[in-house]
Design a protein around this nucleic acid. Structure first.
Lengths: 108, 108
DNA sequence: TCGATGTATTGATGATTGTCGATACATCGA
DNA sequence: TCGATGTATCGACAATCATCAATACATCGA
């Protein structure tokens, strides 16, 4: 006995799914969301790594770990200014997430 | 020696961050992304659970596991039609993610 | 009532993750 | 050159996760 509509392939193939899932996973952590939020809200759009440890309440290696994940996902970029590294959001990369989600929302 | 701008609190507090991270984590898996994609692309906007096992290449308990996570996150909803359960995307919940991300993107 | 079929749960397992202490690397001021 | 300070990496550990076989639950047709 058949159920309903015939089997179909999803519009999102396996590779696309892995790519988008990587971005979502990189951002899917409270600490990393707050980091990105801080950067977006910072005057000039960038924040010194040394400012994150305190507000987040995390140890320095942990912050560095999260920054690395965000950096490797391309969601943030950092440039060294002497002793410090200033990080900023990469808007195009963030938009990639919303772009991947928007078409999936049926307006109705 | 001071670094740069004074320490500031991120615009995203801990609770908000956890909430948004939960949504991103629920969606941050290739299988779950494809499931949502299939529902959004399905005629009528809903898909029978029995159709997912094949295209995804996953065992039935695994599919059920992913459906549960998406359901508990409020991203999908399912109603039983006799022997089968039809699932559909909850657009408002998906929009919650894009809404949480959009304001963080500085346009410039 | 009973077998068939779709769905959910349980239990187990290997892999991944978030966290931090210890430590190494990088850069500055003296 | 040397100590101080910001950053990155290493190693370890507990927690979580994705996966599936086995099994239980739910519903239909006969």
């Amino acid at each position: 006995m058949e159920c309903c509509t015939p089997v179909f392939e999803g519009v999102l193939n396996a590779d696309e799914a892995v790519h988008t899932a990587d971005l979502l996973t990189a951002l899917g952590d409270p600490a990393r969301l707050r980091i990105v939020s801080m950067m977006a809200a910072a005057p000039g759009g960038s924040v010194c790594g040394c400012e994150l440890e305190g507000p987040l309440g995390l140890a320095q290696p942990t912050v560095s770990h999260h920054l690395r994940i965000l950096r490797e996902a391309g969601l943030i970029a950092g440039d060294r200014r002497g002793r410090w590294v200033h990080y900023r959001v990469v808007p195009e990369r963030l938009a990639e997430i919303t772009d991947a989600l928007r078409p999936r929302v049926p307006t109705g």
